[in-house]
């Protein structure tokens, strides 16, 4: 694969500060008070990306499973922390179940993509696995956060119906199944919608990157297609897992709703 990409020199990188100045002007002009955050954000983005750049160079060079797997798990952990931070209605922190759902869905789908579809040499190539798993995690993270948030809002909004169904003899699953379905659906919908418009509204970041890096568009499109259906599959599995895992915790051993659900 000889990609004829155009490198960015140090001088050119320095010139990109013009863009930061433009952003700063908007903030100053509208008195948004964002200058400090903008400055801090720019510095952080630069430092984080630089460190990641060196780290990836090192990891790709070593390319051993005992480095790749802990890194993938760390990525899954960071993603699950972010997902559970966004769900404020949960009676207890969903960190652990988020981690389990994200890890399971990401590994199942990621391994199918890497081992069966892309098949790099050697099979466990960090250069392939880390970006692929990263893309899956980023999207699944959004999906499970949406699904969990929806699940708890539905339950809060329908607590009397759930209680009535239980009183009429419903099993816990029968009492909440409509809301569980709505939750999984809400987690999956953005991904499915993005399948409809991809390429029409905007070119996805990954494809843009590959084209800029010199890959011919035909090939970039193939990659992008695989990536999109892979994301859809991972989001679906992740949302299903997180909803099933949280469902258990909604009920007491006496099959009544846990009290914390009545509080908020």
């Amino acid at each position: 694969m000889d990609y004829s990409y155009i490198p960015i020199s140090n001088l050119q990188l320095l010139l990109s500060i013009i863009l930061v100045l433009l952003t700063g002007l908007v903030s100053a002009f509208m008195q948004l008070g964002l200058l400090k955050s903008l400055l801090w954000g720019t510095i952080r983005a630069f430092l984080q990306l630089t460190i990641i750049g060196y780290a990836l160079t090192f990891i790709f060079a070593v390319n051993k499973l005992y480095i790749i797997i802990p890194i993938l798990l760390l990525m899954a952990f960071v993603a699950s922390r972010e997902a559970s931070r966004r769900v404020d209605k949960a009676p207890e922190s969903p960190l652990l179940i988020s981690f389990l759902s994200l890890t399971a869905s990401t590994f199942v789908v990621g391994l199918i993509v890497v081992m069966l579809i892309i098949t790099p040499e050697p099979l466990y190539s960090a250069r392939v696995m880390i970006p692929i798993f990263g893309m899956i995690l980023g999207n699944s993270m959004n999906g499970i956060a949406l699904a969990l948030d929806r699940m708890y809002s539905e339950i809060h909004a329908h607590i009397e119906e759930i209680e009535e169904l239980l009183a009429l003899g419903a099993s816990p699953w029968e009492a909440v199944q409509d809301y569980m379905k709505a939750a999984v659906k809400s987690g999956m919908t953005p991904t499915i919608n993005s399948l409809m418009v991809v390429g029409l509204v905007s070119l996805p970041g990954m494809m843009t990157g590959q084209i800029l890096a010199g890959m011919d568009p035909q090939n970039a499109v193939r990659y992008q297609f695989v990536v999109m259906i892979m994301i859809a599959a991972a989001v679906a599995i992740g949302c299903l897992l997180i909803v099933l895992l949280s469902y258990r915790k909604l009920f007491t051993e006496d099959q009544a709703l846990i009290e914390a659900l009545y509080q908020k």
Binding site: E161, E164, L166, A167, G169, A170, A256
Partner: peptide, 19 residues
């Protein structure tokens, strides 16, 4: 069994719930 109990010892709420 809780489901059997709730049908036999059955609660009708203060504010009726209609589906």
């Amino acid at each position: 069994d809780p489901a059997l109990w709730r049908r036999k010892i059955h609660y009708v709420p203060q504010k009726a719930v209609m589906f």
